[in-house]
C-alpha cells in the first residue's frame, strides 16, 4: 500500500490552485498566502519537481477541475545538468519544461515567467529564485535576509569553513546558508516551511515582491 493511500485522498477544493514542489514549499507558500490574506488558494505540494508532470496530468482529470479559475506552478530553476557552477541556463529550461506540461494537458501556456495566460483556467509559471538566475527558493529567501543582523555572522561562518578546508555542498550552498541563518532564531527551525509558519521569514522584504505579485494575481 502506498503512502498516498494512507492519507486522505487529494482533491480540488478551491478555484485557485498553486502547485509547488514539496511539503516544505507547501508550508512556506501557505504562510505567505496567509500573510497576504489570500486564503482562497489551495496549495498542492507534489513531492518534487519530477512529479509536476504526473500531478498535473491527474489534476486536470479531477471531477472538480472544471471549476478551477486560475492555476500557478512554482518550481526551482536549480542548475543546468552537468554544469559545475551557475551559468543561468537552468531557468529557461525549467520554464519550458512546465509550459510543456501545461500544453500536454491542454492548458493555456503563459507567454513568459510570472505572467498569467488567459484561460480558463488562467495559468502562470514562476521559476525560483527570479525567473532568470540559477538556484532555488532558498536563494530568494537569502536575498530577503540580506539586511538581517545574523547575515554577516553566517557569511563569516562559511568563510571560516572554507578557510579550514571543510567541504560543503557547492550547488546547494543556499540551503546550507539558510540553515545557518535559521539556526540564529530564538526558536531555531532548519526547515524553511516550518520556519515560515513560525514567522521567521519577512515576507514584506522586496525580494519577495515578484512572488507576491504573482500570488496576488492568482488570488
Amino acid at each position: 500500500m502506498s503512502a498516498a493511500s494512507e492519507k486522505h485522498a487529494l482533491k480540488v477544493e478551491k478555484t485557485k490552485l498553486l502547485i509547488v514542489e514539496g511539503e516544505d514549499e507547501r508550508l512556506l507558500f501557505s504562510a505567505l498566502l496567509k500573510h497576504l490574506a489570500l486564503e482562497d488558494v489551495q496549495v498542492l505540494g507534489v513531492g518534487g519537481k519530477s512529479m509536476i508532470k504526473r500531478t498535473v496530468a491527474a489534476l486536470v482529470l479531477d471531477p472538480n477541475f472544471s471549476s478551477v479559475k486560475a492555476l500557478a506552478v512554482v518550481r526551482d530553476a536549480d542548475f543546468a545538468e552537468g554544469a559545475g557552477q551557475a551559468n543561468n541556463a537552468a531557468a529557461p529550461v525549467a520554464f519550458r519544461s512546465v509550459c510543456d506540461v501545461l500544453a500536454a494537458n491542454r492548458l493555456a501556456v503563459p507567454p513568459k515567467h510570472g505572467v498569467f495566460a488567459p484561460g480558463p483556467p488562467r495559468t502562470a509559471v514562476f521559476i525560483l529564485p527570479d525567473g532568470e538566475s540559477d538556484g532555488m527558493l532558498e536563494d530568494l529567501c537569502l536575498t530577503a535576509f540580506t539586511s538581517d543582523p545574523a547575515h554577516p555572522c553566517m557569511d563569516r561562518y562559511f568563510t571560516c569553513l572554507t578557510a579550514a578546508g571543510i567541504a560543503h555542498a557547492s550547488n546547494r550552498i543556499a540551503k546550507a546558508r539558510m540553515h545557518a541563518l535559521l539556526a540564529s532564531r530564538r526558536e531555531p527551525e532548519p526547515r524553511l516551511g516550518m520556519a515560515a509558519q513560525k514567522g521567521h521569514l519577512d515576507f514584506s522584504a522586496p525580494a519577495f515582491g515578484p512572488l507576491v505579485n504573482l500570488l496576488r494575481a492568482l488570488g
Binding site: 502506498s2 487529494l10 513531492g47 512529479m51 491527474a58 482529470l61
Partner: peptide, 18 residues
C-alpha cells in the same frame, strides 16, 4: 474520463481522489 499512464502515476503518488 480516461486516466493516462502519466495521470495514474500522479494519482498513485499524489493521492488524488478519482
Amino acid at each position: 474520463v480516461r486516466y493516462s499512464e502519466e495521470a495514474l502515476r500522479g494519482v498513485a503518488e499524489a493521492g488524488f481522489e478519482v
